[in-house]
Amino acid sequence: MIPHSAWPVDPGVILPFLVAVVLIELTPGPNMGWLALVSLARGRPAGFAAVAGVTVGLAAWMLAAAFGLTQVLLIWPPLYQGIRWAGVLFLLWLAWEAWRGEGDPAAGDGAEVRTMRGLFLRGMTGNLLNPKAAVFYVALLPTFMRPDHGSPLTQALTLGGLHLVVAVAVHSIIVLGGAGASGLVLKRVQGPVLRAGMAGGIAVVALWMAWETRG
């Protein structure tokens, strides 16, 4: 049996940490709303491409927090606000793009690879411009770290990796649910109505993000 002190993190915090991050990921938020809309309008492959981008964005914030780089967001609030509003504006731009019909799933333009790459980049950019992800790592991770185990960096990377696994699992469930409903929706809603619904949904997500990251 591995000695208790040899674990990189305290084994006693793993279950409470997993419960905490599952509850956080299941709380409705910008990622959940955007992934559901993408999967509903464009199907499962598009949804998973978006999940990959979201995960890379979260991983970037996790690594930044592990190396102490995100502390500047707490020290200098204008930077936090700048990232926050850039994220909101980015989502509003995505809403405008959807309204114009770019990437319309009914268009059939054959640009599947370009569409997947675009969704990956949008998911990644949206999370890089979401300071709430940084605050999550700055505020939550230290409460589960113990001085009698691995180095702070090792503990942060271990717990952060567990969070990414949970996030991928929850986001994948959202994609599967949205894609499962997409067939019925696309049979009844097409063209301008679909674009308007997608644009309106993303705009709501943008307002949602502005509200969630206030303060």
Rank of each mutant, 00 (worst) to 15 (best):
T213C: 11
S5P: 03
G118R: 07
K187D: 15
V175I: 11
F144I: 04
A59Y: 04
P45Y: 03
V51P: 00
G180N: 05
M116K: 13
P3Q: 10
P152N: 07
N130Q: 08
V193R: 15
W7F: 11
G150Y: 02
H163A: 11
L164G: 08
M198S: 07
M198Q: 07
V19D: 11
A210R: 06
G29L: 03
L128I: 12
A169C: 08
L89F: 13
R44F: 06
L92R: 02
T125D: 10
G68M: 06
F90H: 03
L159S: 03
A86R: 08
V168H: 01
V54E: 09
L89I: 15
A206M: 10
G118C: 08
L40G: 01
A41Q: 09
A206H: 03
R117S: 14
Q71V: 11
V193Q: 15
R214T: 13
A139T: 10
L194V: 05
G43T: 06
V204A: 10
P30F: 05
Q81C: 11
G82F: 15
M198P: 00
G178S: 08
G108M: 11
G200R: 07
G47V: 00
A107G: 12
A59W: 04
V88A: 07
G101W: 00
V72N: 04
E212P: 11
S172W: 02
K132Y: 06
T158Q: 11
A179M: 01
L162G: 08
K132D: 09
R100S: 12
V185N: 05
V56R: 03
V72K: 03
G177V: 02
Y137S: 05
R146Y: 06
V185Y: 07
F144T: 01
L37A: 14
V51N: 02
I2G: 06
S172A: 14
V38I: 15
H163N: 14
G180P: 03
V138D: 08
A98Q: 07
D148K: 13
M209E: 06
P28R: 04
L164P: 03
T125C: 12
V170C: 10
V170I: 14
R84I: 00
P131I: 03
D10N: 11
A60G: 12
R146W: 09
V56G: 05
R146I: 07
V165W: 08
G33A: 13
G126I: 00
E212A: 13
W99T: 02
W93Q: 15
G200V: 06
G82N: 13
G215P: 04
P78V: 15
L35P: 03
G82Y: 09
A107L: 15
E212G: 11
L184E: 15
L91I: 05
A65H: 00
V72G: 04
L35T: 12
P105L: 06
R146F: 07
E112T: 12
L63W: 02
R195M: 04
L121E: 00
P16Q: 07
A206R: 01
P30K: 05
W61Q: 01
T55L: 14
V9F: 02
V113Y: 08
R195N: 05
N31T: 14
A95E: 00
R114G: 10
A199G: 02
H4L: 14
I14N: 08
V19E: 13
L184R: 12
W76N: 15
L15C: 09
L184P: 06
G43R: 04
G180W: 03
A179E: 00
F48M: 15
P77W: 10
L63I: 10
P16G: 05
I24N: 09
G101A: 06
A196T: 12
